[in-house]
């Protein structure tokens, strides 16, 4: 069963269509909801939480209807909002405990779970500090702690690395991966930073202007390609060597896209392609700067969609 499943989900705000006939399947694991600001990520999250009604289409989350089963669903879902605002004078432990209670934890259980969640995110020693005295990184961790304290089946995190420096971002991404892997909690995180999504997510749902531009397992959408990038050095003694290499490669049946001294070579089988490149360069005595296996990134995906 998919964690989140939508069929023809459409959301219209006045004349603006925020989501346009979305057919999305979010499986178990960590799923990245990617797209530029205004792509519809937060709107999709708020519909998944039952906070907005879609204009048309349907959605189920954990097999439940977000509107009909709102109370039951929301006690099973943790949510970390994008905004970094919190009650300044409240200790982190009280904040997490209170929200765990509101999400259905018995009072006797909430205190212990709040403490455990804060230890898990690395704030065990800091749990009695007022939220207003905490750094941005610590506050992001508190937001994650409150989202998991009530033992959710699914956690929705809206831009969880917003405002973090690279080290803090690495730590936050590791935590997100950990809570999914160790505690079997499904996570959907939204981000406009494609690189971080590639690092932590198992699946991707990519949105652009309210439509799905790609979805599926990360390793099917990004990763190595059949393209080999070859960069040669033009030298004065052999001014035609690059062109000669291109001719040899094309004679060998390979597709070559020359961009200055950089060749993007596509063949049927990567090993054979690399051998042909090696032989061609040796035969023409060309000077090689680098050989690199082509890699498709999420950025390429979006660039392709836009073009």
């Amino acid at each position: 069963m998919a964690v989140i499943s939508t069929t023809g989900l459409t959301m219209q705000f006045g004349s603006q269509r925020a989501l346009d006939s979305l057919d999305v399947e979010v499986p178990h694991g960590v799923t990245g909801l990617v797209g530029a600001n205004g792509a519809g990520k937060t709107t999709l999250m708020s519909i998944a939480l039952g906070l907005r009604s879609p204009t048309s289409g349907s959605i189920t989350v954990l097999g439940l209807d977000p509107h009909r089963d709102a109370a039951k669903l929301r006690s099973l879902v943790g949510y970390g909002p994008e905004r970094n605002l919190m009650p300044e004078d409240m200790p982190a432990s009280d904040f997490v405990k209170h929200l765990a209670e509101v999400r259905g934890m018995p009072r006797s259980e909430a205190k212990g779970r709040a403490s455990d969640a804060l230890w898990l995110v690395g704030l065990g020693e800091e749990r009695f500090r007022a939220l207003g005295t905490m750094s941005t990184g610590q506050r992001q961790r508190v937001k994650l702690a409150q989202a998991i304290a009530a033992d959710p089946s699914l956690v929705l995190l809206d831009e969880p690395t917003d405002g973090l420096d690279p080290v803090q971002r690495d730590e936050m991404l590791s935590l997100i991966k950990q809570i999914s892997a160790e505690y079997d909690i499904d996570v959907m995180l939204s981000s406009h930073l494609l690189e971080e999504v590639e690092r932590v997510c198992d699946h991707i749902v990519a949105l652009d202007a309210g439509t799905v531009v790609a979805q599926g397992p990360l390793d099917e959408l990004v990763g190595d390609t059949e393209v080999v990038v070859v960069e040669l050095v033009q030298i004065d003694d052999l001014p035609d060597s690059v062109a000669a290499v291109v001719v040899r490669l094309e004679h060998a049946g390979l597709d070559v896209d020359r961009r200055g001294d950089e060749l993007r070579v596509t063949g049927v089988e990567r090993g054979a392609t690399l051998n042909t490149i090696r032989d061609s360069i040796a035969a023409e005595q060309a000077r090689l700067r680098r050989v690199q296996i082509g890699r498709r990134t999420l950025e390429d995906l979006f660039t392709a969609v836009e073009s």
Binding site: A71, S75, E101, V102, M105, E109, D116, W119, A150, D151
Partner: peptide, 24 residues
């Protein structure tokens, strides 16, 4: 092992959420 663990008990609904907000 007192670390983070799954919850097996019964969850409160809206009534328990409201009580917590009133008290807070």
């Amino acid at each position: 092992d007192r670390g983070y663990r799954r919850f097996e008990g019964t969850r409160g609904g809206r009534g328990s959420a409201m009580r917590s907000v009133v008290w807070y």
